[in-house]
């Protein structure tokens, strides 16, 4: 325990020091990576902890971005305190409706249904004239917090933006850790490991999964809000399933069973993409091959390489089936 706390403190110190040590471009790049990490952790609540392979989280991500774009008043900054909750609410509502329908199905059906509903939202913004249709729309000014005309927090500054994203990221890690360690999280994991047994123990599986799915969608919305604010632009591709699948790759790289693993996966994949884009025109080909190799050679994610590299053993990786038995005491 002490060792992992030490690592956390060191990483936190490094994250705080980063904006003062590197040029602005890399601060923006770090913000982008953290936003994707937040999205990957959100998705992993459904995929890793709930066993629900969702291919529509990009839709929740993009929907929140579009809410910000639609609520932004022309060339003036929107208010963070009103637009962020509304954006997250929109994503949560979409997750509630899609989840309620998709959770009537299992396994491969669930994948197909989430994919189809996610693409429905994609086509909604792509084919209609809402917010510029297939061309997308601009978020001209970054949101701010202002009270009585005095600006308290201006996301226009890359450093301020980075710290706000970092704060939300840490809040996300805390929230997800709390959820996963709570009786609710144990029940969710029990339903993943053995649905029939969890059901016969009296857990309301559907409701538990739906809540997890909605929370996961809402956090994806937070990430999407900040992504739209950072790029100053939203386009239907933000909602497309290729992004959902890419985030799934991040989750797999980081490992499915931990809260912060997907964050690591996101940092690795975003860094890798940046590197490949800089060196070759065919970066998608290389990325595709890497994905295939990871899936075939490392079923438990790149994390299983860590013990080999660092010489430590992964203790938390293998949680036995007794999780289901523990959760009985809810």
């Amino acid at each position: 325990m002490t060792r992992s706390w030490l690592i956390a403190v060191v990483l936190f110190a490094a994250a705080v020091a980063l904006p003062f040590a590197v040029p602005t471009y890399y601060v923006q790049f770090a913000s982008k990576a953290l936003i994707m990490g937040m999205l990957a952790m959100a998705l992993n609540l459904a995929v890793g902890h709930g066993g629900l392979v969702s291919l529509c989280h990009a839709a929740f991500f993009g929907l929140a971005g579009y809410v910000l774009a639609l609520l932004s008043p022309g060339y003036d900054p929107a208010s963070l305190l009103t637009t962020l909750p509304l954006a997250v609410l929109a994503s949560a509502f979409a997750a509630l409706v899609i989840g309620a329908l998709a959770l009537r199905t299992r396994g491969v059906y669930f994948i197909m249904v989430t994919l189809a509903f996610g693409e429905m939202l994609f086509f909604l913004f792509h084919d209609t004239s809402i917010a510029g249709g297939s061309d997308g729309a601009y978020v001209n000014a970054k949101p701010e917090i202002a009270i009585a005309g005095r600006q308290l927090l201006d996301l226009g500054s890359p450093t301020v933006f980075y710290f706000v994203v970092l704060a939300f990221l840490i809040a996300t890690v805390a929230l997800l850790t709390m959820i996963v360690r709570s009786p609710f999280g144990h029940a969710l994991a029990a339903a993943r490991d053995n649905e029939r047994r969890a059901r016969s123990l009296g857990f309301p599986i559907f409701q538990i999964r739906l809540i997890a799915f909605v929370v996961s969608g809402a956090i994806a919305g937070v990430a999407g809000y900040f992504a739209a604010a950072q790029f100053g632009f939203v386009a239907p591709q933000m909602l497309g399933w290729h992004l959902s699948a890419t985030v799934l790759v991040m989750v797999l790289i980081g490992g499915l069973r931990s809260v912060t693993g997907p964050l690591v996966g996101a940092l690795v994949l975003i860094g890798l993409e940046e590197l490949l884009k800089a060196t070759t025109d065919y970066w998608k080909l290389i990325e595709g091959i890497i994905v295939i190799v990871i899936v075939l050679a490392m079923p438990n994610g790149v994390r299983q390489l860590w013990p080999l590299i660092f010489g430590t053993s992964e203790k938390r990786e293998t949680k036995p089936a007794t999780v289901a038995a523990e959760a009985r005491h809810v």
């Binding site: 396994g107 491969v108 699948a245 499915l256 998608k284 595709g288 994905v291 899936v295």
Partner: peptide, 23 residues
């Protein structure tokens, strides 16, 4: 293997096929 592996492997194939198509 679980569905996640199947989803991701076929996603990797899509990336590769798409790039071959472009070449």
């Amino acid at each position: 293997r679980d569905h996640l592996a199947q989803v991701l492997l076929s996603f990797g194939l899509i990336l590769v096929i798409d790039e071959f198509r472009e070449i």
